[in-house]
Write a protein that binds this DNA or RNA. Structure first.
Lengths: 241, 241
DNA sequence: TAGTGGTCTAGACCACAAA
DNA sequence: TTGTGGTCTAGACCACTAG
């Protein structure tokens, strides 16, 4: 029943998570680690790894000497700030069926902040990709990606640029996006942003300023994104020490 | 040299982290897991646990078949959004030496949102604690905590309320704060907030709305906090899939 | 091919909670 | 006292990278 690849840990995690969301555990009590190990035919270590991940993502909590339990509040979280990858995926998690609109693609000289963040030489240019994510004709997210032009040498179609940026980088620039270093910045909608997102001027917004790194730990992407607070809220779990 | 308690994993993690920040690893290359295990006299599993935690917090990255390396960009992160507890600690991590000013303490009937978040009965009241964190006479954070009054029965001094709220709950209400479920909300400074934080009206701000849970996974605290964006920026790492 | 990290095992002992 | 999660071990085999 259980095979390798995906890893046993991943399969165990998926199995337990499925039982949780289907409410198969009476009183929110998850079987003991030994029982789960026997049931799935794996070692207790493997089960512990799976449960640790479920604990970090907030699905369960553990009490030494007592047991492991379903964490109802943690299950509510739809968009975990520290896990999100593509904005399409976030919106889908919220029950939306978003479409992506490509606003503009052009090449330019980056400003000082971007040049520094991406370790660019003085004459390097960046390719700017501006997109909005729309739900029911309502813009929800506006995002602007800047990629060093030398990374994406080649010719692209409009459809290529419409791809999620991590996919664009992976399939067309051979750069696997590994992680973002993100900064949360509050802004007030200026005229341009108000028009793009269909909101009134001066409305307060959350924005992300982030640098994306590849597998070699080199910066390959600088992005700034703006979110319609009334349509999309970010949540996270902050663990104690 | 290495003893139990704190755990071997914690000691190993601390040891490696110290070598990293003191730049003891040439070229940012961390010794192999086996070497570290031999050097510290523990098993490879213990070393792997320590390295995993350092990887999650962004201090190192690993490449299968190649090795483990110092992650310079990750070391820049001062306030990890998903980990930190008291605001004093956050500010200290930023190099500040903050002081806490108790603005007001009073009892009131909570609004509907708070009542629901804290699972309160219709006639339960909450104790409201308002504080600001000040650096060099500049207010940086304004926070308002609401705790069910029945939890903090007893008499308190002004100094008690000045404690970090997790400490107040732990020592005076016997409630260990386990985690927060937080929501990030953009706001525009109104007259009152502008006055408290010493900024101009309509300035965009980040705020947190959060519910704190105890060890029994019961909500024990509702809090709302506002941050001076020009003095304090939140950063986080977003990992790929 | 040698060395690295990734996964997994079986079993030990401990700390803690509940009956 | 019993059963739970927390920590740790020694060793196995695999997947990948680099010389």
């Amino acid at each position: 029943m259980i095979k390798r690849s995906p890893s046993l840990t991943d399969q165990a995690k998926a199995h337990i998570k499925e039982q949780i969301v289907n409410n198969q555990y009476e009183g929110g009590r998850i079987p003991s680690e030994s029982d789960l190990a026997n049931e799935l035919g794996v070692s207790r270590t493997t089960i512990r790894d799976a449960l640790s991940r479920l604990e970090i993502e907030g699905s369960v909590f553990r009490r030494q000497g007592s047991g492991t339990f379903v964490n109802e509040p943690g299950l509510q979280i739809k968009s975990r700030l520290d896990e999100i990858w593509s904005y399409e995926a976030i919106l889908q998690a919220h029950g939306y069926t978003p479409s992506t609109v490509l606003l503009d693609v052009h090449e330019k000289q980056p400003n000082e902040l971007v040049r520094k963040s991406l370790n660019l030489a003085a004459d390097d240019s960046v390719t700017v990709i501006q997109k909005i994510f729309v739900e029911d004709d309502e813009p929800v997210i506006f995002t602007e990606n800047q990629i060093p032009t030398r990374l994406c040498a080649g010719s692209f179609t409009k459809d290529d640029f419409r791809l999620p940026v991590f996919q664009f980088l992976e399939t067309l620039c051979r750069q696997r996006l590994n992680y973002y270093l993100s900064e949360i910045v509050p802004v007030s909608a200026d005229k341009r942003l108000a028009k793009i997102l269909g909101i009134s001027q001066r409305k307060p917004l959350i924005s992300f300023e982030e640098t994306g790194y590849n597998d070699e730990n080199e910066p390959v992407l600088w992005a700034r994104s703006f979110f319609r607070d009334d349509l999309l809220r970010f949540r996270l779990i902050r663990w104690g020490v």
